[in-house]
C-alpha cells in the first residue's frame, strides 16, 4: 500500500500522531510527515487510515495521486468555493 502524504495545509495539531497504529507520523520542528516505509494506510486496522479519520483539516492528507482524503467541505460542512479561474 502506497503511503499517504501530509500537505502544507497541516496545522500541526498533533491529533494524528498518537493514534497512528504504525507510528508512521514523524514530527520535526512541528512539521508533520508520514514515513513511507511505516505507513500501511492502516490496512487491517480500521476501515480508513486513522490519520484521515481524525485530521480536522480538509486537504491536509492526500494520496499518492494527489487526491485529498478529506475533500473540501467534507469536515467543516462549509460548501467549497467555486474553483479558481485558470
Amino acid at each position: 500500500m502506497i503511503a499517504l502524504i501530509i500537505t502544507a495545509e497541516c496545522i500541526a495539531c498533533w491529533a494524528c500522531e498518537p493514534i497512528c497504529p504504525n507510528a508512521a507520523i514523524r514530527v520535526k520542528n512541528e512539521v508533520f510527515r508520514i514515513d513511507k516505509k511505516s505507513c500501511t494506510r492502516c490496512e487491517g486496522y480500521g476501515d480508513l487510515p486513522q490519520c484521515v479519520e481524525i485530521c480536522p483539516v480538509e486537504g491536509a492528507i492526500i494520496d499518492d495521486e494527489g487526491t485529498a482524503m478529506n475533500p473540501p467541505g467534507s469536515l467543516t460542512g462549509i460548501p467549497p468555493r467555486e474553483p479558481l479561474p485558470a
Partner: peptide, 8 residues
C-alpha cells in the same frame, strides 16, 4: 492542540 471532534 489536538481535538477529537469538530464543533460548528
Amino acid at each position: 492542540p489536538a481535538c477529537n471532534m469538530q464543533c460548528r
